[in-house]
């Protein structure tokens, strides 16, 4: 990796950098070793703290937790996406008495902690924890998705809307048929990034006692005794991070693929359009 921020390091700078790297690595390793040894001294790595993982029941339990996490995330994502289209359209309506209430509701939803929303639904509507988690996530993320879509539509060239109106489409049809598809495409990276956030936020279900991965971890350590708390937490956290890393890798992959295509598309369009435009004016 070359950087414009510094000169290509010479032999001396390279040596210093290598020394610094080695020292840094040693410091981190020492810190890690200290952590591990402290834990080991408390017997956290003894086999008797980890033996529950040889039982299929424990894994089954954790897999159930993953299933609960993923199903809540998937359902919430779908509902949020559907809602977001509607809300984004309302938010951008030409009619004041539709636009203003929509804006107020959106701002309200965006300014609210998700966990508070889940709690609200849980207590006020007396719903199950699953419904509370899904509804809370769906409402909050619908607001975020809607804002992303709106930003996407606003970033489109004005001519798109004008062209739609000029060929006789209604304002609504122009939005749905001309602007939204382009906005979705343009904003795909942000939308997928928000999906990762949504997936992460399912862990808030822990606080409203939804039996997702983290709650299962807690139940396991209650059941088998505090002795297993660390090991169960460790496995649970590792699983969570693994799932999230996978999804964000997919997000990055989509972003790369999308930007390559979009860049090629725009570049191709401008080069092919410009000569004809010039030839007509000449």
């Amino acid at each position: 990796m070359t950087s414009v921020l510094y000169d290509v390091p010479g032999p001396k700078a390279r040596r210093n950098s290598r020394i610094a790297s080695i020292v840094g690595a040693l410091v981190i390793l020492a810190g890690a070793a200290w952590g591990v040894s402290t834990l080991a001294r408390q017997g956290l790595f003894n086999a008797d703290r980890w033996d529950i993982f040889s039982q299929a029941v424990v894994w089954q339990f954790l897999v159930q937790g993953i299933g609960a996490t993923l199903s809540a995330a998937a359902l919430a994502a779908v509902i949020a996406a559907v809602l977001a289209f509607g809300v984004a359209l309302l938010r951008m309506s030409d009619v004041t008495w539709i636009r203003v209430p929509a804006t107020v509701v959106l701002e309200f939803l965006r300014g609210m902690p998700v966990v508070l929303m889940m709690f609200f639904i849980l207590l006020v509507f007396g719903s199950s924890a699953f419904v509370a988690v899904v509804a809370g996530l769906a409402l909050y993320n619908a607001a975020i998705f809607a804002e992303i879509l709106r930003a996407g539509i606003q970033s489109l060239p004005k001519g798109q809307r004008e062209a739609g109106l000029a060929i006789g489409l209604t304002s609504f049809k122009t939005r749905v048929l001309v602007e939204l598809p382009q906005a979705v495409r343009r904003m795909l990276p942000s939308l997928v990034a928000q999906l990762v956030v949504l997936l992460k936020d399912t862990s808030l279900g822990y606080i409203v006692t939804y039996e997702e991965l983290l709650r299962k971890v807690n139940i396991l350590s209650d059941f088998y005794g505090a002795k297993y708390l660390f090991s169960v937490f460790f496995v649970g956290a590792a699983l969570y991070i693994l799932i999230n890393l996978t999804v964000s890798r997919i997000a990055i992959w989509i972003e790369r693929r999308g930007s390559k295509k979009a860049a090629g598309g725009v570049a191709a369009a401008t080069t092919s359009v410009r000569p004809t435009a010039e030839s007509t004016t000449l």
């Binding site: 921020l5 690595a25 822990y206 983290l214 937490f233």
Partner: peptide, 27 residues
């Protein structure tokens, strides 16, 4: 320019961004 700093920062950011905050709290 120091590779170790770059690596550490990248690792930290990547792990933290993919960890739910609830788990960080739990930790």
């Amino acid at each position: 320019p120091v590779a170790a700093l770059r690596g550490f920062s990248m690792f930290y950011v990547e792990v933290m961004r993919n960890t739910p905050l609830t788990i960080v709290f739990f930790f």
